[in-house]
Amino acid sequence: MSENCEYMLEVKNLHTSFFTDSGEVKAVNGVSFDLKPGEIMGIVGESGSGKSVTAYSVMQILADTGRIVEGSVFYKGEDITRWDKRRMQKFRGKCCSIIFQDPMTSLNPVFTIGNQLMEAIRLHTDKNRSQAKARAIEMLELVGVNEPARRLKQYPYEMSGGMRQRVMIAMALACEPDILIADEPTTALDVTIQAQILELMQELQKKMGMAIIMVTHDLGVIADMCDKIIVMYGGSICERGTADDIFYDPRHEYTKGLLRSIPSATNSKERLVPISGSPINLLNMPKGCAFCSRCDHAMKICIEEKPQELTLTPTHQASCWMNVKKLQEGQVRP
């Protein structure tokens, strides 16, 4: 059944919580999405929106206090939340890899680049030492690291931020995974280096055909890279659609607010419209819509009941009572 499955990854009603001393923090609340082979999906949201936790839940690399409490993650039709530790270890790296935000701290400082690269290759393939080395050199070349053979002997501190992020990408892609999760891959980098890395990721995606989940807070990066976009707030998805849907026809008040609060290329001098208030406290989630305390158009029903996801066009869904209201008033068609 795994061969004829349409989706590479299917997440259904995922709930992830952290059990802390001050109570249960519901970081992810019922997130569902699917990813086709070769697709680039973006997850945007502020800090604390649950975007990274969603990614970590897929990989099952949550902190000790965190646990998937409900829902399932299907990889090629198989529910990986039921897999045991050993099987998950095989899954990570070979089927699904992750690049972390900070290339400064995600490489081990006491091992050489070559050592760390070859470790991943030898764990997941039956290549011997010299074959693994050849593969490591090939990967470094692929991600545009100059003099790869010499670099293998270097330690992370001898490289710049952009170079380290390239090594991270090489490491993630060394076993040709089907899915690459990039958790804020360029946030710690400068603009010109960010452009290099994004270009590289797009190029590698074309060459190797893996699916990418891009987790970021930068709407510019999302607009540049992604086929489809998920906007998250307070642990749930508030809107999803293609890049054009989200940027030109946002249908959730939070997405609209986000777009109004950044200066765009065309109206650089216009006054920004900030979203009032501050992000919600996940320990103390409201009963209704998570965004309603900051929303200018909040209605009575928003406080009382969580909005359901409404399909607006085949590619575009949003969870906002405003759409339901408009629908009832006959202003829009589903």
């Binding site: 603009v191 010109t192 960010q194 452009a195 994004l198 930068d218 709407l219 510019g220 990066v221 999302i222 607009a223 540049d224 890049a243 054009d244 940027f247 030109y248 777009l259 950044i262 765009s264 290329a265 065309t266």
Partner: peptide
């Protein structure tokens, strides 16, 4: 090149 590298939050322009 610095300006051209800035990701613009506008898919059509991009």
């Amino acid at each position: 090149s610095l300006l051209s590298a800035v990701p613009i939050p506008d898919p059509r322009l991009t």
